[in-house]
Design a protein around this nucleic acid. Sequence first.
RNA 1: GGCGCAUUCGUCUAGGGGUCUAGGACAUCGCCCUCUCAAGGCGGAGAUCGGGGGUUCGAAUCCCCCAUGCGCUACCA
Length: 492
Amino acid sequence: MTEKKVRVRFAPSPTGYPHIGNIRTALFNWLFARHSGGSFILRIEDTDQSRKVEGALEAILNSLKWLGLNWDEGPEVGGDYGPYFQSERLDLYQKYARQLLETGNAYKCYCSPERLDQMRREMVERKESGRSYDRHCRDLSPAQQAEYESQGITPVIRFKVPLEGQTTFHDLVRGDITFDHSELDDLVLLKSDGYPTYHLANIVDDHFMEISHIMRADEWLSSTPRHVLLYRAMGWEPPLFAHLPMILGPDKSKLSKRHGATAVTEFQKQGYLPKAMMNFMALLGWSLDDKTEIFSRDELIKYFSIERISSTAAIFNHEKLNWMNGLYIREMPAEELSKQIMPVLESDLPASVPRPISEEYTMQVIPLIQERINTLGEAASYADFFFLGDELEYDPALLIAKKTDKESTLKALKAGLERLLSINEWNHDSLEGSLRLLAEEQGTKAGQLFSPLRVACTGRTASPGLFETMAVLGREKCLRRIEVAINKLANG
RNA sequence: GGCGCAUUCGUCUAGGGGUCUAGGACAUCGCCCUCUCAAGGCGGAGAUCGGGGGUUCGAAUCCCCCAUGCGCUACCA
C-alpha cells in the first residue's frame, strides 16, 4: 500500500472572527500534520464576496499565530501549490466547471432566484424528499438554451447528480455513511458572478493541493456525498475524510456570538495563555486515556491520533478552561509571568497610578498573586492596592473583624502601628515575629490584630499573606495606610 | 417535512461482551493546612450508561425500534 504524504489544510472563510470551534479544527489538523511529519496548509476560502468581513482574515491569522499553529503553506509564507486564496484561483474553477459541462456531468441553469425560492417553500409543504430544485434546466435542448441566452440571462452551472443509486463513503471518525442520490439536489458549482461555490472550489483545491485528509467540522458531513460524486465525475481520487464533533454553547446550539466571548482573539485579550488554550481545545473532542489531561504542545503532537477523536458534540466548558489556565499560570516562572502581566497592569490599573510602573516592584508583587489569578486579565483587580497611593477607598466597617468591636479594633491598630514603628528590619520574618508577639502580649487571637491591619494596608478583607504583602508594600506605605485607617475609624 | 449524525455523573470524558457494585477531571460539598483569600492535600455526593425490545451463559459495550438533541436541506461557507 502506498502511503500518501500527509497534507492537511485548515480552510476558513473570512466571514467572521474565528471562534473556539473553528480554531479547534485548525488545531486538530495542525496536530495531525505535526504528528505525522506532514504539511499543514492554510487556505482562505473567500468565494462569497458579499459576506466578507473586514478584519476577519487578520483575526484568523493572528489567532493561529498566537497559538503557535504555524502553517507550512498559505498566506504570508507561500508554497508550491498556491495561490492560497480562492479568489485568486477563479480560472481554475471555471476550467473544471467547463470540463464537467463537456463531459456531461453538469449543465447550465437559467432559473431565477425567485423561482428557486418558490420551489424551496413548496418542498417544505410537500413533506417529501429534501430536494427542492425540480431540475428544470437539466435536459434543456440547445434551442431552449439559446432562447434563455438571448434573454441575457447569465446561467449558473449545476452538477448532475445521478438520478438513482446511493453513495457510501468512509469517515475516519464515524465509519461508513450512505446517502441516497434521490435526496441530493443538483448543486450549483459556479455562481452567476463567476465565483465557485464552496463545493467546487473545495474539491478542486483539495485535489490540486494534494490534500490527503480532510478534517473539518461535522456540519459538512451531509455535503460529503456530493463531494465524493464530484471527485468521481472529475476522475479524481477523493482524500480521506474525518468529521470532527461540533463544539456547542451552553444551550447546546452551534457556537456563535450569542454565547459571549468565544472568539479566540477575545480569549487572548482576557489573558488566557496560548498553552492552556491549546491544551484545553485539544480535549474538546479528543482524549488520550481515562486520566491524562495536562499536555504540553510536544506531548500533544506525540500522542494525537484520529482514532481517538470522539464522535459526540461537546459543550464548551468555560469553568474548566479557567481552572486549566490558572494551572498554567501557577506553573510559570514568576519572572516570565511578570513580564506578561506588566502590559496588563499598565493598561488596567487606575489612571491615578503613575506610569510607567516599576518592573522591579511588579516582580515582587507577582508571586503574591500568582496562585490567586486564573487569567492575566485578573491581575489588576488582585494587585491594584500594591500600586495605589496612601488613601485607599473602603468601608471603615471592614476594619472591624468579626466578633470584635470598634474600640478593640482601634486599640489593635494603634498597638500595631506603634510596634511597627519600632521594627528594625522590614521583612516578612521580622514582621511576622513582632506582630505575633504583639498579639500574644495583648492576649488576643492573631486574627484580631491581623485582620484590621490587612484591611488598613490593602483596603480589603481578602489578600495575599499579610506579612509578604506588607514587606512588598514597604514601611512607609504601610505605616501611612495604618494611620489613615485609624483616622477613618475614629472619625467614622 | 426529508436526510444524516449523535445519546455514559450538571459539564469534558474513559470504556470497544465478563477485570464496571462504570474510572478520571472541572464545578459542587465537607475536612485538613491557615492571618484572610487562594493554592495544595484528603474525602463525600453525583451517571440503574436516553427508553424499549432482542442476540448471548453474560451488554454501557453487538442488532432493531422509538424518543430526544444537533447538523444539513442556499447562486453561505
